[in-house]
Simulated assay, not measured.
Amino acid sequence: MIFSVMASGTTCRLLQRRLSSTVATATATRPSMAELRGRRSEVFGREQARQRALYPRIEKIEVQLHGPGLDGTTLVMNKGLSTPLSCAKHLTEFHVTASAVAMVDGEQWSLHRPLTRSCSLSLHSFRDADPALVNQAYWRSCASLLGQVMETSFKDDFLVELLSAPELPVTSGAFCHDVVLDPQLDSWLPTEEALRSLSRGAQQLIHQNLVWEPLEVAPPVALEVFSHSRFKQEEVEKMAAESPQGNVTLYRCGDHVLLSAGPLVARTGLCNQYEVTAVHSLGSGPRGLQRRVQGLSLPLQLQAHHTVWRKLRARAEKQVGVPVAPEACPPPPDAPTPISDPTPTATPSV
């Protein structure tokens, strides 16, 4: 009987060792977040180079400008190479630094997206008489920046899966991005210091004045970019089905590649006041515990007094009224026990 118990104990220890070894091997072979970002950026760069090679000869197009003081102005630009920003550089410093998005033949257009035909063009900034178009692009860009912060701020051995960034009006009071953190962090409850650390990560990206590079691609390219995220692949398929051309638009900011349903502003430097205000639990789903990260920001051309900012921030802390994704279940009745706050890192790596 004693021998039997000892044998059983030995067997258990051997099984535990094998299991630990299997888990360690799986963790070692699992690509890190930095490796995933590198692969996505590499595919983006390869497709970008392929598309640029489609225009071996320089062909001229005419761009008719519209806007205050610009009506009747026509520029001769290069097909497939010149962008709305290229056109702005033929105007004034204000058009270069203040323009956020463009309209090309009535279609919303990124400042960095090449022009492929003769067209009409108008440049838009936060000083427009009707800034609705720019404000929505700005809110969308801030949500995209929030996703980038969440993916880069945690320790590299914690995987972060970015879900959707719900399209919210500016009047909602906050922009947001849904995420699933590594299962090891299921019981993590963010402290005020953690939120400040995430905000510092966003400020670093803003200070770098990174460009949001657009690239319209066929679905197979986007599926390759997001080959490690089944959620993003499903999002690609849905966007492609809803697009008249059957394509989707990717953006790259630094080495971070994302999907977007609409144009983003020209660069991160157009953001100014920016804070990550809250992290709300949406409950468990097939991919794990879903969370909604929220933030608040004002552009460089618009600033608020600190008393007004405090009121706006208090509003942005409350969970925004966005329909919960069908896969998300109601939060469990018993809140998880908080663990120590090892993440995000004090100085997020970008």
Rank of each mutant, 00 (worst) to 15 (best):
L259S: 07
V225Y: 15
H177K: 06
V211W: 13
D182W: 12
A165F: 07
Q233M: 11
F226G: 09
P220K: 05
L205Y: 00
L185M: 11
L250R: 14
G246F: 07
S197W: 15
E235K: 10
A165D: 05
K238W: 08
T249K: 02
H207R: 12
E192G: 10
V221A: 02
L264K: 09
N247T: 15
L223A: 03
G254S: 13
E242P: 00
E224W: 02
L215I: 04
G246M: 04
Q204D: 11
Q208D: 13
E192K: 09
P166Q: 10
C253Q: 11
E192M: 09
F175T: 02
L198Y: 03
M239A: 10
Q204M: 13
L195H: 14
L205P: 00
L205F: 01
S227V: 09
L205Q: 14
C253V: 06
L185Y: 14
S172D: 13
V179S: 12
P183I: 00
C253K: 03
E192V: 07
V225D: 11
V217A: 01
D178V: 00
Q203L: 13
M239N: 04
D182C: 14
Q204F: 10
L205I: 07
S164G: 05
L259Y: 06
Y251S: 00
G201E: 06
P219M: 06
A202F: 07
S243H: 12
A241T: 14
R230C: 03
W188P: 03
L264T: 00
L168R: 15
V248I: 04
T171L: 11
S187Y: 04
D178E: 15
D186E: 08
P244D: 01
L205M: 13
L185G: 04
C176M: 11
L185K: 09
A174Y: 04
D186H: 04
L189K: 13
H228Y: 15
P244C: 06
H228S: 10
W212Y: 14
R252L: 01
R252N: 02
P166S: 12
L250V: 01
W188F: 15
L181A: 05
G246P: 11
L181T: 04
K238V: 03
V221I: 14
L223V: 04
S187C: 13
E235M: 13
D178K: 00
G201L: 08
A241Q: 15
S243V: 03
G201W: 08
E242S: 14
S243T: 02
L205D: 02
G262C: 10
L168M: 14
